[in-house]
Design a protein around this nucleic acid. Structure first.
Lengths: 389, 389
DNA sequence: CGCAATACGCTTTGATCTTTACAAAATCGT
DNA sequence: ACGATTTTGTAAAGATCAAAGCGTATTGCG
């Protein structure tokens, strides 16, 4: 019932729609023959043929001349989506590290650049590292800024419509940083800034623990606790971008939950505060009673917020990710028990399968989605980088 | 990126799409001339003319021959969407009453039947009253069951995919009732059963307090407390239909919140338990200190759950509805204060404008949506009642 | 080596929308 | 009152596109 849907459709538009059908059919499958595409789209073979040739001349597809054929009959020419027509960037601007991923339109990661940064670094320094990482990632892959079709940057904290994290962020001095504008000076393509938990949720649905689900609550368990929500297959930001920030409710003890692990009695003084949680998980795994109790207290606090999310959204799957997901073997079981106790309908509880790169991966996916919306839903022109606005 | 979107489009389909464009343009506006429709859809005037005539002969539209014209030039024939081509039913199966609304395809309410039922009535009795009300509503409007294109029934409690309220419902013995199947014996059209709070939320967005918003948290404040969620303009049920049931969390004191009003000291013994809350609100309005304190305690408990919903979803608007919304003047201000204290980004807090019929109205809207999906999005054949499945 | 099976590419046909043109009906100006 | 103007209704011509049909090319199998 959108305004666009009320628009009439003429013949050129019909051709455009059918071209889009072919492009989508090409993207989702290995190199295809005209006959296969014809069956997949319902279009006639001649129509597909004409359109496919148009896609090749426009640069959206490439032809694979027939090689050794296995079937009988004349071997068919195969068309393949030209994933290399454009590239997208996903960047994780973390507290300790900055990670950039460059991928083609199929989501194949072409290049990766990672650089650590001091947790207490000022915005100027952090932005300098970011510029370095992004430039290196693009350059080392043999690309120019103009070859990038979309950029997504992940930051911690609720991101508002302008791309700022004005409510809260653990990055020092970051509240006033306009990251989208900063990256916008380097890229003319769409630049999106998004919350890290939300992007990690997106990644888990893309190629992680919840590829089968449309309703997902993602829990980021680490030194900071957060959540990302996917409802009916779409990442939900909320009206002001602050969806999932249940941790701000005092009744939900998310802010202090990790302290149960950090302040666990028995942690040697030689272990740094950042490594304390890992030490406690290891100790708990080896049977240390104090450590086990600390883990249980952590899960109990985590579960209250998780239960609030689950009761609000009734998701199919809860994914436990973040730094602590390496110790999911210790967390999942008590988390399930607590949720069973608190919730009406019990969701699947799973551990993240993506590890520490999930945030950058989700940023990549959001870039791909952005390209999809701009190029593969409305119209289909020659493959060039979409411009902002 | 749906499966349907990958389907190719041929010429007849093009005509179908354009017919749909015209139907939508007709539905959203007063009787229109061909020229107006042409401008609205972007189609040429002759094309619109042909399609409009086809719609008339199919029964989707009627012609208004030109009467007194105000403008210069030849007076134009006007086309009008034939809202009377089909009708839909919305039924509120409440604890104390059963209310049925019959409306045409424009949502104009044609007939209303209401009948009270004992709160403690067994399912068989309640279903008998329901049948009576529904039959009367259809018959008194001069319609037959075959003229009804969609039926939606509202019940209290989380409704699962099969239309049952297996988790919880205050209706005695209702957990095992298959209301959809029961209504299905009388109607061959789609029959939907849905939670009352969710439907009330839908109604508020349709023609209530939140027509301007796409992200809405609806709070049902009454002897029972509940919530309905609209996210990105769509009613969200959750994977198992239990979305919004935050009241089940013990940390959220929704279950006992109304007791603050019922057990307020100073309520005369002559006032029945059902009327106690109204008495307390009145007393509070007149300055009774105990009553004011009770209202404040109620709001304080209500706000915890509301804050959990708001923090999870970051909605644009929170609508306070239900039986207590008549006393919204006393509730809204303290509710705003509490939410301000608890939440990250403050939403608009508004009172329901629909009153007690909002649930049935929402049921009506869901029926209309069902018809829209079945008839006005995929294809467009002659106007006949859609069949189930 | 010939036949069958399959795929490719061209031509014809049919459906649809747009453009253009013209007749019909009403109002406005003289 | 009558013609000019404006807008609507309708018809014909032109353009675009997909479907259907048919001949040709290429391969495998007997």
């Amino acid at each position: 019932m959108t305004e666009l849907a009320t628009t009439g459709t003429d013949l050129p538009r019909l051709r455009e729609l059918n071209s889009l059908s072919i492009v989508r059919a090409l993207r989702d499958h290995p190199p295809s023959t005209v006959t296969e595409l014809s069956q997949r789209t319902g279009l006639s073979r001649p129509a597909v043929d004409v359109i496919a040739q148009g896609l090749v001349s426009d640069g959206w597809a490439t032809v694979l001349e027939p090689g050794a054929s296995s079937a009988v009959g004349r071997p068919a020419r195969r068309y393949r989506f030209r994933a290399g027509a454009g590239h997208v960037l996903g960047v994780d601007v973390g507290v300790h590290k900055i990670l950039a991923l460059l991928a083609d339109l199929d989501g194949n990661i072409v290049h990766t650049v990672r650089q650590s940064v001091a947790a207490e670094a000022e915005p100027a320094e952090r932005l300098a590292v970011l510029d370095e990482v992004v430039s290196a990632c693009v350059a080392e892959a043999g690309k120019a800024a103009a070859d990038i079709w979309a950029v997504t940057a992940a930051v911690t904290g609720a991101v508002d419509a302008s791309g700022r994290t004005s409510f809260f962020t653990p990055l020092p001095g970051w509240k006033s940083v306009d990251l989208a504008a900063h990256l916008g000076t380097r890229f003319s393509c769409p630049v999106v800034v998004e919350n890290d938990c939300k992007l990690a949720a997106l990644a888990e649905r893309w190629k992680g623990a919840a590829t089968d689900a449309d309703d997902i609550v993602y829990l980021l368990g680490g030194m900071r606790t957060g959540a990302g929500l996917i409802i009916d297959g779409v990442l939900r930001r909320g009206f002001g971008g602050a969806a999932g920030e249940i941790g701000a409710l005092k009744h939900v003890r998310w802010l202090n939950a990790p302290e149960h692990l950090q302040n666990c009695p028995g942690v040697p003084a030689t272990v740094s505060p950042d490594d304390a949680a890992a030490w406690v998980f290891n100790a708990a795994r080896e049977g240390d009673r104090a450590a086990r109790a600390a883990v249980n207290r952590y899960v109990k606090d985590l579960a209250v917020g998780a239960a609030a999310l689950v009761l609000t959204l009734d998701p199919q799957v809860v994914v436990f990710g973040g730094g602590f997901s390496r110790s999911a073997d210790l967390v999942l079981e008590p988390l399930r028990n607590e949720l069973q106790r608190l919730c009406l309908r019990m969701p699947d509880v799973r551990a993240s399968t993506l590890g520490a790169d999930s945030v950058a991966l989700g940023a990549l996916k959001l870039s791909l989605n952005e390209v999809d919306v701009r190029l593969f839903s409305a119209g289909l022109s020659a493959p060039v980088a979409p411009r902002r606005q």
